[in-house]
Design a protein around this nucleic acid. Structure first.
Lengths: 138, 138
DNA sequence: GTAACGTACAACCAAATGGTTATACAAGAA
DNA sequence: TTCTTGTATAACCATTTGGTTGTACGTTAC
């Protein structure tokens, strides 16, 4: 199983969704067993609408899926998104290892690095990539 | 290696910091090699101050560490925090597996028994925990 | 010394977040 | 039918976020 890689926007959504303890809690409950939004909302002191919004955030991040069952919306966790996020974190770890695989960690690609003047300790290994956003990154 | 577990607030900070593509990019660069804030800022079209703010967010999340070197602040990645986040994601996965270890997966566990701090494998795992934002939260 | 560099931070702004209450509607139960 | 439950959404509000410009300050280069 390969598990699709995350686009930058998807990664944004997933990590954002995970960056709130209430939402992490909702996700845990949804993982333990599917349940309606209302039964979820009962567990919190905040308003039903607030919980609903959290569910929506989780849904937009694909961390959960809603499924209508009669008059209820059943919330089900989608572990694939969790795994994708996990994979992205693994890539950071990978970069870390690659750093030490580079012999010396000094004087990397001589290619361009037109004015990497300063920073003698670490010239530009593979860093000469397109600077700004647009997720290019490896 | 045990790797400290994350408090809710730390988890908030880490995932929040990761929920922005510019910050993930900065983190990747910092992982590849330590460098000053200015050399990082050169890679982006946004203002220096904006990059500085992103660095601060990453620092508060302990994803990077700053270290003064002469007049420069050197930004260094702290992979431990990445690993902690990874571990938290693993716990979701773990919950998922426990769900199917429970014989039956009886849904709708009413779950009131407010004492089960031990994550029983059967009925309601730790579902009864004070879900809401306890003291700490924002 | 002065100049340039790297950094820090304040003040400001628009947009997004996280919460509230209130209203509306469909499905089941009585 | 009416009542209740579960859901959805709008309007509103305070705070945070992500960006800007401007100012200030210590360190290094000249």
């Amino acid at each position: 199983m390969v598990i699709q890689e995350l686009s930058e926007a998807e990664a944004d959504a997933i990590f954002r969704a995970l960056a709130d303890s209430t939402r992490r809690d909702i996700l845990r409950r949804a993982i333990r067993h599917e349940q309606s939004i209302s039964s979820l909302a009962e567990r919190y002191t905040m308003s039903w609408a607030a919980v609903q919004k959290h569910v929506t955030v989780l849904e937009r991040a694909s961390l959960i899926v809603k499924e209508r069952r009669g008059k209820e919306q059943i919330v089900r966790a989608n572990l694939d998104s969790v795994r994708r996020a996990s994979l992205l974190l693994d890539q950071f770890e990978q970069l870390w290892h690659e750093r030490f695989d580079r012999i010396g960690d000094i004087l990397g690609s001589p290619a361009e690095a037109p004015t990497d003047t300063g920073v003698p300790l670490d010239s530009a290994p593979s860093d000469t990539a397109p600077p700004d956003k647009e997720g290019t990154e490896r």
